[in-house]
Deep mutational scan, measured.
Amino acid sequence: TRVETATETAWISLVTALHLVLGLSAVLGLLLLRWQFPAHYRRLRHALW
Rank of each mutant, 00 (worst) to 15 (best):
T16A: 11
L24M: 13
S13Q: 15
A47H: 11
G29C: 12
L18Q: 03
A39H: 14
V15W: 06
W11Q: 04
R34F: 06
T7D: 06
R2K: 14
S25Q: 03
E8H: 09
I12L: 11
I12V: 10
G23T: 11
L30K: 00
G29W: 03
E4P: 04
A47Y: 13
Q36G: 11
T5S: 01
A10E: 14
A10M: 11
V21Q: 00
L31S: 07
L14M: 13
R45M: 04
R45S: 07
L33Q: 06
A17S: 06
R43M: 08
T7G: 10
A39E: 14
S25T: 10
L18Y: 04
T1H: 09
L31H: 01
H46I: 02
A10F: 09
R42S: 11
W11C: 05
V21P: 00
S13I: 13
R42P: 01
L44G: 03
H46S: 09
A39V: 13
R2G: 08
L32N: 00
T1Q: 12
W35Q: 14
L30I: 12
W35C: 10
L24Y: 02
G29D: 05
T7M: 11
H46M: 05
A17V: 07
L28D: 00
L22G: 10
V27I: 15
R43W: 07
R42F: 09
L20N: 02
V15D: 04
A17W: 08
V15M: 15
L31A: 14
Q36T: 13
G23L: 15
V21N: 00
H40W: 07
H40R: 10
A6T: 15
L22W: 00
R43A: 09
V15I: 12
S25W: 02
R2E: 13
T7R: 13
L18H: 03
V21F: 15
A26M: 09
A39Q: 15
L14I: 13
L31Y: 12
A47E: 02
P38W: 04
A17K: 00
G23K: 01
L22V: 13
L20P: 04
R34S: 05
T9S: 11
L24G: 07
R45I: 08
T5G: 01
S25I: 10
R2Q: 15
V21H: 01
A10P: 09
F37L: 09
W49Y: 15
A47G: 07
W11V: 10
E8I: 02
P38Y: 08
H19D: 01
A6I: 03
V3G: 01
A10H: 11
T9G: 11
G23C: 14
W11A: 02
Q36A: 11
L22F: 11
A26C: 13
A17M: 07
E8P: 09
H40K: 12
T7F: 06
L30G: 10
V21C: 09
P38H: 07
R43L: 05
L20G: 11
I12W: 05
R45P: 01
R2C: 06
I12A: 08
G29E: 04
R42A: 09
S25L: 12
Y41A: 14
G23A: 14
L33A: 07
L32I: 12
R43T: 11
T9D: 03
L18C: 07
L20T: 09
L18W: 12
L22T: 14
L24P: 05
L24A: 09
L33H: 03
A26V: 12
H46A: 05
L44E: 02
A17F: 06
